[in-house]
Design a protein around this nucleic acid. Structure first.
Lengths: 340, 340
DNA sequence: GTGAAAGCGCTAACAC
DNA sequence: GTGTTAGCGCTTTCAC
């Protein structure tokens, strides 16, 4: 069926011309080579007939450009990162670069190995998105002359474009304070009058920023210090969050004034618990979630959500690559928006 | 910083040996070449020191193998397809193939163009997932000798691995019938005693199969024919589904015995509408959804969901590639499972 | 206006 | 045991 793939030499022979002429015609540079329109047409027709396709391994090798741009993400199966992939593809194609998206499962070893493989395929630039340990990847890229930018999580050896987690958490906390009311039946100092932060891992960069934003606003709003028990970075799993909120409910003998849930996955667990309570138990408890999920906006009670701006995050990252601004001290913060 | 990338010639010169020896050492084939362990070690150490990385464009060109395997999906930003991507990556890596995932936005032109580009990068095989028009892509692959399999949506020119939509719809419908009760307050012939199908596009392969499964079960269960108004493939958008269910509720003066919602996106709209009703209105209405979303399982009322088996779909597709079973008449159906 | 030829970095015969 | 050499398919001088 398909013997050998045809090459420009096959085309040249069959069209009665030379490989270099065919190459110029196929690349669109034949006008400046002043190839006769007649030859050009003949070759093009033949190429079409034989369904000729360039071998980009060969042309890339010769030109020292692959036309490839890579992006590493922690995982595909996640709303935020898959939105990033979608935007990445769009922006890459606009620049006539072919997008390679690979997941690295939050594993620093895999991050490094992935970068190495991408480099071996001669990618021209790399977006390091949500990497656990971006600096070693930076070092590798720099050594091989690959332009790169950190996205979502900052690094110290390349410019970083990140979501403004501090600001987002402050906005969300402010709204939680504003939209919730002190529980009239209880004394002002009752623990249920406080706001609680749930989910994430305290040592993670994003979680740390969000906790800071949460505390900033609470401390500014009231003279009382934020108590340690108001902050529970219990991890990202839905089960952990479900247990944490059940525990909180148990200790407080009811729901608090408001809950700051630090990821949609944690929110799943929280929602599962809340749905087991009688509906009236929700009265007065306002729920906010850092990160957005379309389903969460369809729940029977409102959830305030922080939606990260994937378009701007990616857009800015490409802008840095486009203009060759690769100053490692640059850190660009993109404001998320509040939904619901 | 990074002048020229070092090549095997650089390594050879600096290690005082030849390029072919270096190549053999780097490829692990040096034992059969009986290179002295001493030389091997020296070269390896040097390669490590210089952070040498192969140029896979060059080695691929020479070997006529790229080590690349491609997959086309309609979009990244979707639970089902992003789960497919994640599994695809895993299975590709297990086979020492480098995974390329690209989205084609349900655009037949883009599907073909994407396939062409992937082929120009010399991919060794291609998984055509959820393609609107898979056969032209098949033709292209066949012409260039690229092994390929259709996944999720069948084609006629390559083997297909698809979800058993008919069976899944039958199971879901059966469960909806079993778990719902006739509304005691109404006559047996009242339209609210019927089940309704909502969402999708009637001409889509998957939707057509699901409608068939829905009707099969209903017709077997009762002597009454399924009425045209029980089937409303109103599209995939949440807004359309929301309007459709509102309209249905209006016409029936209440909710029907059960609803078959044909996608999680449509379910979002349905949920939005149902949450606007007083809670008691839900009484007796059982909701099922073809496709799965973790959030939907956290709603305040149960949703029966059909979860497609991405692991088996991908696993089977790779199995066909592995064993070179590329008979275009083969069509493998993978049973989904019922959740909730 | 067009062809010949060199070479991108690598691998695999084939020498010795 | 190891080096020499001939390409893989393409682009790009350079020559005429």
């Amino acid at each position: 069926m398909s013997r050998k793939r045809s090459t420009i030499y096959d085309l040249a022979t069959q069209a009665g011309t030379s490989a270099s002429t065919v190459s110029a015609i196929l690349n669109g540079t034949w006008r400046e080579r002043r190839v006769s329109a007649e030859t050009a047409e003949r070759v093009l027709a033949l190429a079409h007939k034989l369904k000729y396709t360039v071998n980009r391994q060969a042309s890339g090798l010769r030109r020292k450009r692959s036309g490839l741009i890579g992006m590493m993400i922690p995982m595909h199966d996640n709303r935020f990162f898959s939105a990033m992939s979608q935007t990445f593809e769009k922006l890459a194609r606009e620049r006539h670069l072919y997008p390679l998206v690979v997941s690295t499962l939050r594993d620093p070893k895999l991050e490094l190995e992935t970068a190495r493989t991408l480099i071996s395929y001669q990618i021209e630039s790399l977006l390091i998105t949500g990497a656990t340990d971006p600096d070693p990847v930076s070092r590798l890229c720099t050594h091989h002359g690959v332009a790169h930018v950190n996205v979502d999580l900052p690094g110290t050896l390349a410019p970083s474009v990140i979501s403004n987690n501090l600001w987002g958490a402050q906005m969300l906390t402010q709204q939680l304070v504003q939209r919730s009311r002190p529980l009239a039946a209880l004394p002002a100092t009752h623990p249920r009058q406080r706001l609680y932060f749930l989910g994430g891992i305290a040592s993670d960069y994003a979680t740390a920023q969000r906790i800071r934003g949460f505390c900033d606003v609470l401390q500014a709003a009231s003279p009382n210090a934020v108590l340690p028990e108001q902050i529970n970075p219990c991890g990202y799993e839905a089960e952990r969050a479900e247990a944490a909120v059940a525990d909180l409910h148990d200790k407080l003998q009811g729901l608090p004034r408001a809950l700051f849930v630090n990821s949609t996955i944690a929110l799943e667990g929280v929602v599962r618990f809340l749905n087991r309570l009688p509906r009236s138990a929700m009265n007065g408890c306002v729920v906010g979630c850092y990160d957005w999920d379309p389903f969460a906006s369809a729940l029977s009670w409102p959830v305030l959500m922080v939606k990260q701006d994937t378009g701007k995050l990616m857009g800015k990252a490409f802008e840095l690559l486009d203009t060759d601004q690769l100053d490692p001290t640059v850190q660009i913060q993109i404001a998320p928006s509040l939904v619901g």
